[in-house]
Nucleic acid binder design. Structure first.
Lengths: 217, 217
DNA sequence: CGATTGGTTGACTCCAGTCAAGTGCGGTGG
DNA sequence: CCACCGCACTTGACTGGAGTCAACCAATCG
């Protein structure tokens, strides 16, 4: 958990963690509007984050897989402002808020880490609202799969997406049909192979190149 | 100046203001990247604010007319991050930064006022990046003219736009041709009359209704 | 084995961008 | 005062990208 953070600090955190909470597919891990009580680290499984955007329509603004932190966005405001729903049966480790606070005092590096992670999330959200073509959006998403998911055992570049096309489309701010079409084009070009929720990356470099204008998602 | 702020505080501010600075058309009032030295209140004339957006292309993100405050965005960072260029010969009143700071200490209400104004600007910028049709964007802009400009003497609903169509288009994130076409459609519908830089609002209620999804710009 | 659901594909539409050709206004100079 | 010029603006024709609607297909679950 807390990928990229100093191992010493990680160990301290482990000491105050409540192990592990199970969340079955489709259930909420946190609800928008409730007070910030815990920060969660995803052990396995995955979650989507939904919140109403400025025009009031609900909208997926993030996916969180093993190793990601859920609830960061509430650290500053003290209140969650998004729903987090399990995309599959998942397990998370929970760090109680007050423990986290004392850890912040002990380890300024932890605070920096969290701050940086929050601003990265916001940055990503904003980039996704910019105007990019469907290809750019989708390529950026596909190229980022290895950073977020484990490949399927025995198939090094094959990933099983836990979210539906509908959710991907919502996240990328596209219609589901547009996602479908873009996927098909990538298949025809030979960059990927698709079989239901399983996607094999045949040419990640190419996808990265196409998705570069949007950056990491 | 400082429209909407408590008159008592306004008087205190007036005491520390350096009166008035002239800026001729096309000249910079502030330059991006320079340290925050003054907050400016536009007396007469108008300015555009330009800054590079996330993808590096320069882009107009605001217009400032009589009564507006220029430089707010630098209060928090201590450095201007946008160019402000006079759209016509203009005059501004300058409040030195250190005076402003001591005023903040004296009048918490002033600090709140500034904070609110900053967040309104950011909010507006973000709404403009959302996806709205050209009509919605333009209608919102037109409906907002009375809030920003004095009508021409003797013509109650007629305003002279100090900025070019190119600049309007850039601000609204459209092509200039698209702005032109939308204007023409509004003329044909009878909501406005256009004569070069002069625009007469014949049906502001209608424009407000059309522009509502985007809100105030 | 049908019914449901999620995904794909096709046909069509709409909106805005682009390129190119006018148009008109303001300014300059004769 | 008028003719001309330049520039900003407008208009038209075209293009392309994504949304919508509808049909189809495949997998899953009773």
């Amino acid at each position: 958990m807390f990928r990229g953070l100093d191992p010493d600090i990680q160990e301290k955190i482990s000491a105050v963690v409540r192990y592990p909470v199970n969340v079955v597919r489709g259930r909420h891990l946190v609800r928008s509007g409730t007070p910030f009580t815990h920060l969660y680290s995803v052990h396995d499984g995955s979650f989507k984050a939904c919140a109403d955007d400025s025009s009031g329509r609900e909208h997926v603004w993030g996916f969180f897989a093993a190793g990601d932190l859920v609830g960061l966005h509430a650290v500053t405001t003290g209140r969650y402002w998004a729903d987090f729903v399990a995309l599959e049966d998942s397990r998370v480790a929970a760090v109680p808020f007050h423990e986290l606070n004392s850890l912040f005092r002990q380890f300024p590096a932890l605070f920096d880490f969290v701050t940086r992670a929050i601003s990265q999330n916001i940055d990503r959200m904003e980039r996704l609202t910019g105007d990019f073509t469907a290809e750019v959006r989708l390529a950026a998403l596909l190229a980022s799969l290895p950073r977020h998911f484990q490949p399927l055992p025995g198939a090094p570049d094959c990933y099983r997406l836990p979210m539906s096309r509908r959710e991907v489309a919502d996240y990328l701010r596209l219609a589901p049909e547009t996602v479908s079409r873009a996927l098909s084009r990538f298949v025809r070009s030979g960059w990927i192979r698709v079989s239901g929720p399983r996607i094999t990356l045949l040419n990640r470099a190419q996808l990265e190149a196409i998705g570069r204008p949007l950056g990491e998602v």
